[in-house]
Design a protein around this nucleic acid. Structure first.
Lengths: 194, 194
DNA sequence: ACCTGAACACCGTTCAAGT
DNA sequence: ACCTGAACACCGTTCAAGT
């Protein structure tokens, strides 16, 4: 019945290409597929679920990385919105810690995204850029305050955080594990005392 | 010339199935392919290069994980052979540090293996088992000596080490990066002072 | 100008047939 | 008992044809 209705609409109104509306709908489905299937979801399924031809999908997102960046952009914008709160903290290391916690939290729903986190953060989508800018600034601040060793690169931290969300044996989202591993990373970032 | 010779041998001696010799030859080629192509190398190519039918490959190694374990077993046995040396050290944390360094070193030649390191270490191949046993014992020792926080699991450490060999932007094997990231992990493992 | 999906290539996996 | 590779299924990617 409902399927019949959709078919009729498609026939009577030949899919007037409202690019904006169309893309938004695609993004919603895109995210849903990534949530259900993980970041290795088949492009075929994404296209089908997004009601878009596979060719159109490729034109909008020439690589899987672009797709991941688009799907993650909103979540990363949310991370970036923590800026004021984090800037208000006393400890720069604590600010970085909370940033990383938020990053893992907002990034965990796409299974396997962690492995591609550096790539996604380096994309030019606005949310990705904002989160990366904030993260780099927090790291720099902690280093200037001598709370983090000066030789560490932002990419090092992101790679380590990626490992956190990598499940040990496939499955099992273990919050305790995430917490203790983030603690290890944060404590390990401190300058070595001699 | 040499190719011709091989072809003749194959014809005159119809590949007498010396399973042992055959498997060893396969393993050599298997490792070569993983070195050249990374751990996602196509099974087709592995079979072809190993002069084995794809079906035979599947019978010997029903999953890619088994293949990875077989290819890594010798390297991991080498890691395990550090046992005496590491047991002789004063600091249990330093022993663990050197173990992890060795692990990264012997594991780095297969691009992408890091991500599957926990799986490989958990396989029942002898070298994998030996390396895992040693690693777990070293961690336990460091914890008993209060040099490592007691809530850490061996799998946590391996996951973090996996991140180390994960290149940030594809390519670039950077020894300095490996060293500082391993240092971050080791320092971060220390019990938190309060 | 934009969209579509058939068509091609490549790879994983199984299994009937061969020795 | 062991090996083989054709056959099938599935997925990524391109591009000629359609609107």
């Amino acid at each position: 019945m409902s399927a019949n209705g959709r078919a009729e609409m498609k026939k009577s109104r030949p899919l007037r290409a409202d690019a904006g509306e169309n893309l938004v709908r695609s993004l919603e489905q895109l995210k849903a597929v990534f949530v259900e299937r993980g970041v290795d979801a088949s492009l075929e399924e994404i296209a089908k679920r997004s009601s878009v031809g596979i060719g159109t999908l490729y034109r909008h997102f020439p690589s899987r990385a672009k797709l991941l960046a688009a799907a993650s952009d909103e979540q990363l914008a949310t991370v970036a919105r923590k800026e004021a709160e984090l800037d208000g903290l006393d400890s720069r290391l604590e600010a970085l810690h909370l940033f990383l916690k938020e990053l893992v939290k907002r990034t965990g729903m796409y299974h396997g995204l962690a492995a591609a986190l550096n790539t996604v953060l380096n994309s030019d989508a606005p949310g990705c850029k904002a989160a990366t800018d904030l993260g780099k600034r927090l790291l720099k601040g902690a280093q200037d305050a001598s709370e983090v060793r000066s030789d560490i690169k932002f990419e090092d931290v992101v790679s380590l955080v990626g490992a956190v969300s990598l499940s040990p044996q496939k499955g099992a989202r273990d919050p305790a594990r995430i917490n203790r591993m983030l603690e290890v990373i944060i404590e390990g970032l401190r300058p070595i005392q001699r």
